[in-house]
């Protein structure tokens, strides 16, 4: 067991971890941040995406000890300071970009990472940018619209209705 310290959603946290403890388990079990979800065991579904030092990372594919000292943001850290939904979260609600909600944290985190490097993505760039996140409910239609809206583009005009 090794003590690991990192900054999660603005708070410095420390915990004893085994070498094999994944970042996803560190967050879910160690810190009770259960918004980060585990949807597969092959790093394919993207439900566990968090940001590590600003980069989108599948937290099920990273050992907690390997990100010691890093700054981590999870879905629990995405709301505004006053608790209201952030721009991306609000766009997902406005455009019905979620149904069962299980893939949603990963979708929001991947969207945030995409928009950070490409603030006005095309529909094609959004679809490509989210192809590491699987959603079984929405058919992606309203997710793409939500991302368009979150990037300040006219979602209704760009998405066929």
């Amino acid at each position: 067991m090794t003590k690991v310290t990192m900054t999660v959603n603005g708070m410095s946290v420390s915990a004893q971890t085994e070498g094999r403890t994944l970042l996803s388990a560190f967050l879910r079990e160690g810190l009770a941040l259960t918004g980060t979800h585990i949807g597969c065991d092959t790093s394919q579904c993207g439900a566990c995406v968090v940001h590590v030092d600003g980069q989108a990372v599948k937290s099920c594919a990273v050992f907690a000890q390997d990100v010691a000292g890093a700054t981590v943001t999870t879905i629990e850290g995405m709301a505004n300071a006053d608790g209201s939904l952030g721009v991306i979260q609000a766009a997902f609600q406005e455009h019905h970009g979620l149904q069962c909600g299980f893939c949603t944290p990963g979708m929001v985190m991947s969207t945030a990472a995409l928009l950070a490097i490409n603030p006005k993505p095309t529909v094609e760039e959004i679809r490509h940018g989210l192809d590491g996140n699987i959603c079984r409910c929405t058919g992606y239609h309203n997710i793409v619209k939500a991302v368009l809206a979150a990037s300040g583009q006219d979602a209704t005009a760009m998405a066929a209705e």
């Binding site: 079990e29 259960t34 918004g35 879905i75 939904l85 997902f92 609600q93 979620l98 909600g101 949603t104």
Partner: peptide, 21 residues
């Protein structure tokens, strides 16, 4: 009408079975 359930799902405060300890 916009969905009320979205608030918890979008903020990581949903309550799925594996989230329960």
């Amino acid at each position: 009408v916009k969905r009320r359930e979205d608030i918890r799902f979008l903020t990581g405060t949903g309550n799925y079975t594996d989230d329960i300890t």
